[in-house]
Design a binder for these strands. Sequence first.
DNA 1: TAATTATTAGATTGACTACTCTAACAAATA
DNA 2: TATTTGTTAGAGTAGTCAATCTAATAATTA
Lengths: 212, 212
Amino acid sequence: MRKIDPEKHAARRQVILDAAIACFARKGFHGTSTAEICAEAGMSPGNLFHYFPTKHAIIAAIVEEERQETADFFRELHEAPDLFAALLGFMDAAMGLAADPVYSSLALEIAAEAMRDERIGALVAANDAEMRAALSALIRAAHARGQIDTAIDPEAGARWIAALIDGIFGRIAVDPGFKPDQEGATMHLLLTRFLRPPRDAASASSDAAEIG
Amino acid sequence: MRKIDPEKHAARRQVILDAAIACFARKGFHGTSTAEICAEAGMSPGNLFHYFPTKHAIIAAIVEEERQETADFFRELHEAPDLFAALLGFMDAAMGLAADPVYSSLALEIAAEAMRDERIGALVAANDAEMRAALSALIRAAHARGQIDTAIDPEAGARWIAALIDGIFGRIAVDPGFKPDQEGATMHLLLTRFLRPPRDAASASSDAAEIG
DNA sequence: TAATTATTAGATTGACTACTCTAACAAATA
DNA sequence: TATTTGTTAGAGTAGTCAATCTAATAATTA
């Protein structure tokens, strides 16, 4: 008998995923036919459906791939001496990804699909929760080292940092004048003012008073 | 002969638009068939296509409707005595809209469609440019009154405020724990620290130094 | 009232959809 | 070598899609 070669199998799956990513970024999930993915991947529908049972399974695999990549990125982040600087580095990396039109189109498409299809929604929500958990852990560690203002609640801070990342992708989608490589300075200023510990106790408490 | 009654005509169009909004929010633009819109609107396809030549024209009309509403909102904003407070009010209103699942689904769907269809993309970009122009004008006026830090460039500031709004909708899409009515305080803190004039000149310049 | 035209219904069309089926081919084991 | 089984192709299926067409009806004006 013959056994399945896991490496070859995975490589073949990846060919399909890469083709699907290109198509979904170009025309969206529902705007792409399985025939188009077949053409991009250079294979027959019989072959494609040998590796994925449904079109839905393809986008689910893409979301899972995404999760892996984000998790890998965070694994290295905690070793940095200055955690606030590490956070800025993470945000710069997010800007770099957003600058890639394929990546940003895909991210937006997945977010939209998450609202329509609750199976995708659950996967995306899990990814997001994982990222926010890493971010709030980073904030907590930075609190201990005095690198981020303890007035910032770790969970709330993580949420708004995540919102800012979502916002970057939103800008790419609707604002052709938003150039990631020129917007880094303002983003750093925003994050610095939002998160950095105040120089003296008085100014921190007066900020808090203003938001009442 | 018989002339077209503009009021009746507009009302009938609105029935279709409202039905389409409900459908698009539920299942997305490409996930919704014209037959579904007909069912929701309670009319035949012949009738629907009497008022809109294509399905695309329907979503285009929805985007235009959106533009009107945003413009109306900004018209009143400039008369406020405290422009920073007015901005916070605007952001609170955005959070209120985002809390409506129909509105937020639709906004995300339109953003995703803007990346796929350049005709929609152009409409959405025009809306966004209009909103950012209003925001930067508000920042400039606030500069003159000392209500917003002059270290914030009006255009860059407007871009990142817009990014924050996009981010709110992103949170709604992927983070079920994001409750708009509980996140206002952190948002106000972020905006206050980002935009408010510093209490003394020294701290403003030291912020600037940190982002180098 | 007669003529005109806006409005509406609903069956229909041809293209397209995700996916299946059958069968051939290729590789690896016994 | 013989056999098993993973891999591939491509025609085919049942159904859906946006949009059209024909024709009937309702409202307005002359």
